[in-house]
Simulated scan of single mutants.
Amino acid sequence: MQLNIDFNKNNDGLVPAVIQDEKTKSVLMLGYMNEEAYQKTIETKKVTFFSRTKQRLWTKGEESGNFLALKEIKLDCDNDTLLVYVNPVGSTCHKGDDTCWAEENEAKFGFLSELETIIKSRKENAEDEKSYVASLFRSGINKIAQKVGEEAVETVIEAKDDNADLFLNESADLLFHYLILLQAKGYTLKDIVKVLEERH
C-alpha cells in the first residue's frame, strides 16, 4: 500500500522516521527519509535514510551489517512523520548500543515490569520482616508454589460465579503470586513470553 507522504511540507524534502522494534516496542533511533529513501526501503525491505551528514542515501547497516529489517510503516495524522516497525539485526547505534539512547532493547510490560522489580528487591532483601513477599521467599519454594495453587483454585471458583470484583481480585492475587514463583525459580515474564513466541 502506497502512503500519501507529504515530502514537500519542509523545504528539504525530508520527513522524520521514528524506528521502533516490532516485538519489544522500544524506540531504537530517529532518522530522515526523502521519497527516494522511502522507495528503496520498500523495495529492499532494509531501512534506508537520507543522511544529512553524507548528503546521500544511506542504508542502515551497509557497513556494519547491522541492518533494520522492515516489517511495517505507518504514517501520522499530518502525513509528515513515519513510524517504522523493524526487526533489528545487531545493535542499532553506531556506538554499539541497542538504541541511540543507550538503552537495552528489551520487552517492557508496563506496571508488571515495575512489580517484577519490586519482587526482585524483596527477594534480595528477604530478611525484611515487614514484607509479605520477603516472608514468602524466606519460607521457600514449597510455600510459594502452594500459594500459587491456592490462588489458582480461588480464581477458578470465582470464575464460575458472576461477581466480577471478586474474580478480578483473585486473578490479581494469582498473577502476583505467580510472579513471585517465577522470581523464586530464577525467571521473569520475558522467559515465559519467549516460550509463547516459540510456540506461536
Rank of each mutant, 00 (worst) to 15 (best):
L3Q: 02
I5G: 02
D12L: 09
D12C: 14
G13M: 14
L14F: 03
L14I: 03
V15R: 00
P16G: 04
A17C: 11
Q20T: 14
Q20M: 15
Q20K: 14
D21I: 11
D21P: 02
E22L: 05
E22N: 09
L30C: 04
M33C: 13
A37M: 01
A37T: 03
Q39K: 14
I42L: 15
K46L: 01
K46D: 00
T53F: 04
R56H: 05
L57S: 08
L57K: 09
G61I: 04
N66L: 12
F67P: 02
L70N: 01
K71R: 14
D78N: 07
L82W: 07
L82E: 00
L83G: 07
L83R: 14
Y85S: 06
N87Q: 11
P88V: 03
T92N: 07
C93Q: 11
G96L: 11
C100A: 10
W101F: 15
N105Y: 10
N105Q: 07
K123D: 01
E129F: 09
Y132R: 15
V133T: 12
R138C: 03
I141K: 15
A145L: 14
A159R: 12
L168G: 02
S171W: 12
S171E: 10
F176R: 10
L181Q: 06
V193S: 03
R199P: 01
